[in-house]
């Protein structure tokens, strides 16, 4: 386990790390804001990818920089979170999108369907 004291963080690492943390949190907030603001499900499915691509990536990078600069050895395990989230979110979104398409198709909802979906399987 690595621990550090906030006063020991070098200034450059604090500024760079803070900027990345703010970028990540800001993108996450904008993405979830889109979840509230957009009007159809298929538009909303794009909103969380903001949080899971550079939202999570920015925060992981920021915390990596702060931890590495303030401890003797490189702390890189946050990269696992960024990688994991980037690779798994497409799987969940794809399954959700297909489920929504399937449900809309079986209920014959107008507007949500592209043409000739009957042979999509």
């Amino acid at each position: 386990m690595t621990t550090f004291d906030a006063a020991e963080v070098p200034l450059w690492a604090a500024i760079l790390g803070s900027a990345l943390l703010l970028l990540g949190a800001g993108l996450t907030l904008i993405g979830t804001f889109g979840l509230v603001r957009l009007h159809s499900f298929y538009q909303r499915i794009h909103a969380p990818t903001l949080a899971t691509s550079w939202g999570a990536g920015g925060m992981a990078l920021g915390s990596m920089i702060i931890f590495t600069a303030s401890s003797a050895r490189p702390v890189l395990h946050e990269v696992l979170i960024a990688l994991f989230v980037t690779v798994t979110t497409p799987v969940t979104l794809m399954m959700l999108g297909r489920a929504a398409l399937y449900r809309d198709r079986s209920e014959h909802n107008p507007g949500a369907l592209p043409d000739q979906t009957d042979d999509l399987e």
Partner: peptide, 28 residues
């Protein structure tokens, strides 16, 4: 390709038809 398209905000992969060699994506 599915992971790349879905991980990019603004495009989402929805379906693939192997018989027609076609994918269905949704673009924001």
């Amino acid at each position: 390709l599915a992971i790349v398209i879905t991980a990019t905000p603004g495009t989402a992969w929805l379906d693939y038809s192997s018989t027609r060699g076609e994918i269905l994506i949704h673009v924001f």
